[in-house]
Design a protein around this nucleic acid. Structure first.
Lengths: 192, 192
DNA sequence: ATGATAAAACTAATACTATTAGTTTGTCAA
DNA sequence: TTGACAAACTAATAGTATTAGTTTTATCAT
């Protein structure tokens, strides 16, 4: 095996680093090659295309997010778990917004690997919802409600959509989550 | 004034049409020029750059969305207005997803025109919230909650993020909006 | 009708983007 | 030492936005 040093994994890692540093919109094969001190064409010895590369970056990003989510809810129940999950999600979107964008922006393929990762993304939500005494169907619906609220909030917060009024965004987020928590307790409590 | 026919407005309109037909990701100055039967360079007689052009497309898209929102809530109050607004928003995101994407994806500039449009986007939400007996601050917070939920839902619904479980998306949306409606009534009713 | 004017088209060029084909080179194993 | 193979290379294509400079032509004033 000739000329060691570079592998598929190290290329993906370099892509992740570059995206986190300069932003996903600034990423290109040329800049990645420059950072790795090779010519752009040489990248194709390690990855098939920029799309496949971004898919790998997305998988890494999803892995990191799911990791944080599962850590956050470990050993917690009901509202404590719910708010911890929400905070972990929001933190990731804030601290790694470029990676978060990769997760959200790049197409959901009918790919088996990503189908499994979709399951991993949803899993922490279902774990949290399991404690509220919902039917299975209700869990599925509320999982959507929860994810919609969180991703919508993360998006607007980062894209500047919430800067029209100079009021605290933490408080808005708390109100949003409390609203959902109330809905959950009500739905679960009444057992309909 | 020489060679009539093409103007800034008609270029923007052609761009809107092309984006709605082929998708924003497929849009380019070359394809727009091809459709208008001119060379790409000639477009720069009418628009400064592709960024400025997309800004104009975004303004048009925002205008259409705000129009629909205001129509939807006209003459309605409280939950009736809330659900009508939500439905109008969701319909636009479904029926004109490419234009919706332009609104969401392109950067919020510190531009006066877009600052005004941000106000127009927020305005229908504030109108609806005005009937719930909230304080001004509460209105600002709930406006964010509402927009986060709606945009998060629209995004996942279109991007395929809600197709993991084969359950009705309308029902999920109804649950989400009912959750917010309950939160609003509760907050407003208690008058704290 | 004629000619000047200026807008709107054009051509040609630059600098990016991803990607492929074909070639060289370096390293490891036999 | 030699053969093989992986990983780099060079060179080329086709697409992207954009600028500079040139030509065309519609309209307006003479």
């Amino acid at each position: 095996m000739p000329r060691q040093g570079l592998s598929k994994e190290s290329v993906v890692q370099a892509a992740v680093d570059l995206i986190e540093e300069k932003g996903v919109s600034q990423f290109s094969m040329g800049k990645l090659a420059q950072r790795l001190k090779i010519k752009p064409a040489s990248l194709y010895n390690h990855v098939e295309s920029i799309d496949k590369l971004m898919k790998l970056v997305k998988e890494e990003a999803i892995y990191q997010l799911v990791q944080l989510e599962n850590q956050a809810i470990a050993g917690k129940k009901k509202n404590e778990a719910l708010f911890a999950l929400a905070e972990a999600y929001r933190s990731f979107a804030r601290n790694h917004y470029q990676l978060y964008q990769v997760i959200m922006a790049f197409p959901k393929e009918n790919d088996l690997v990503l189908k499994q990762e979709a399951g991993e993304i949803i899993s922490p939500f279902l774990k949290v919802l399991a404690d509220y005494g919902l039917t299975e169907n209700q869990q599925f619906h509320w999982q959507r409600v929860l994810r919609a609220m969180m991703s919508g909030f993360a998006f607007h917060e980062q894209a500047g959509g919430f800067s029209y009024f100079p009021i605290d965004q933490d408080e808005s987020f708390y109100i949003a989550m409390q609203c959902i928590a109330n809905g959950l307790c009500q739905t679960g409590g009444e057992k309909r």
